[in-house]
Simulated scan of single mutants.
Amino acid sequence: MFKPLTLSIAVRYLLARKTHKFASFVALISTIGIALGVSALIVVTSVMQGLQDRLKDNLLGSTPHLIVSSDAALDAAALKALPHVIAIAPFVSGQALLQSDNGIVLVNVEGEDTLDLDSDIKKADVPHDKLTEGSFELYADMGLLIKLNLNLHDKVRLISTQNARYTPLGLTPSQRIFYIKGATPSLTGDNSIPTVKGNYSDIKKLLRINNKSSSYRLYLSDPFLINETVEKLPQNLKYTTWQDSKGDFFKAVAMEKLTMSLMLFLVIIVAAFNILSALAMMVSSRLSEIAVLKTLGMKEKTILLIFIMTGSGCGIAGTLIGLLLGIPLTQNITKITELLKISVTTQATELPTVISPLNISLIIAGALFLSLLCTIYPAYKAAKTDPVLHLQQGY
């Protein structure tokens, strides 16, 4: 049972530095190690979470979260009622060859009817509502425009073999002249297929999609919850998700975040083992004092609690110092990198950080648990000390 006497003895053992200097030095090093590990973990996890959220906004803002298609008419109301779906819009997509005077490139073509979309949905891709039906205008990937040396209002030809028709001359693809209306940010790699976007009806005519089949683009409140939405889809529907095109990239980001967190957590583990070493030296040097306490009637459970509290004090102190260091460092990480002349951002942007209470709670809980775990064995050995043997050795 906890008593003030137990706490007072634990604090006295923890702060005693004159008679047990080396053990106190090891305990100090372990406290500093835990503080550095906790603060580094807070900074790294916050920065990685911020980068992941920014990538999610930039990449998945323009990438369809979920596309559902069927050869028959789809129930729009049922699709909008799916978990995490905030809006839906008729959508068509396919592949085509884009031909210009400077070359020919395979592209993805997309068209979306944004007429019924809620105005509060913030979209990072093309403002489709500015493309009128019959204008045959396109918004093209910036990288594609640079590659083919295309300018605004330039004429290009789109050739699609999707739903090609047989004529007396053989299999004839669909082709139409389009005009470059504007550019979209290039968010794909060099080996990725660029995307061009046009009016829903114009792209539908190019791809020769009949009115019987239907396809919808579903907007989710959080793209990372896509699996919960897909599980509720009827089995007869075809669908594609953002994971098909961007899933490997975000898996790599998550793996990097996990790897860096584990490497920094090793610092806390090493520091916690230093607590074990310091407490073991403290117990071995105080065996005669422990024997006196047991002779005076102190129970083994009380002695066990005294040394657990003594060792845990280093872990608690290190965790609190790390917390007090980590949060301000995270909040001022951009200014710190600028002072250190480390260029990680442009002048117009800051290093994104997200201080997650859940992540911080897990870091604190892990550090405290390891500190407590490493005190159990030395405290147990102290509680099992034979008072007769060590009192005899003391005289």
Rank of each mutant, 00 (worst) to 15 (best):
T132M: 12
A383S: 15
G61N: 10
V105A: 05
L293H: 03
L304C: 07
E256S: 11
D222N: 15
L324Y: 11
Y395L: 13
Y179D: 01
E231A: 11
K205I: 08
K147L: 11
Y139M: 10
L391D: 04
S70H: 14
V126Y: 12
Q393K: 15
A72P: 01
P90M: 05
H390C: 04
G61T: 02
I86S: 11
D113W: 05
L225S: 08
L373E: 02
N102K: 15
F265Q: 07
V107M: 01
A278L: 12
Y377F: 10
V109R: 04
M1E: 11
L293N: 03
D71N: 13
S201Y: 07
A252I: 00
I146H: 14
K181N: 02
N163A: 01
L325A: 15
Q243W: 02
A40E: 07
A40R: 05
A383I: 07
L233T: 07
L79K: 03
P168C: 00
L82D: 08
T172K: 05
Y380E: 00
C374W: 11
T31M: 13
L106A: 14
D118Q: 13
D141A: 13
G61P: 08
F91W: 03
I342Q: 04
E338A: 06
T345Y: 09
K18M: 00
D71Y: 05
L258N: 11
G297I: 11
S8G: 00
M309C: 14
A27D: 02
K204M: 09
A78R: 11
K3L: 13
L368G: 10
S361E: 01
V283R: 00
I316S: 13
T188Y: 05
N163Q: 01
L287D: 00
P352M: 05
R17Q: 13
H65Q: 14
S361T: 14
V47K: 07
S288Y: 10
Q243F: 08
K299E: 02
H128A: 13
S135R: 12
E338Y: 15
L287K: 15
T172H: 04
G103I: 08
D116F: 09
F224G: 02
Y166S: 12
P234K: 07
S356D: 12
E133G: 04
C314R: 09
V270W: 09
F2H: 10
S312L: 15
L15T: 08
L370Y: 08
T259V: 09
L320S: 06
G94E: 05
P4I: 06
F178E: 01
A278H: 04
N191S: 11
N210F: 06
R54M: 12
D113A: 06
M281T: 06
A348Q: 11
V292E: 02
N58Y: 03
I9F: 05
H128S: 09
L28Y: 06
P4M: 08
I308V: 14
F307Y: 03
I364L: 14
I363Y: 05
P64D: 01
I34N: 04
G143S: 03
L79T: 07
L145T: 12
L389D: 05
L145M: 15
L237D: 09
L391R: 12
E289I: 09
L233W: 06
I306S: 11
L28F: 14
T31P: 03
R165C: 00
A89R: 05
G394L: 03
P173S: 09
A348T: 10
S285G: 10
P357M: 08
N274P: 06
I321Y: 03
T31E: 00
L225G: 02
G315Q: 02
P378M: 01
T240Q: 10
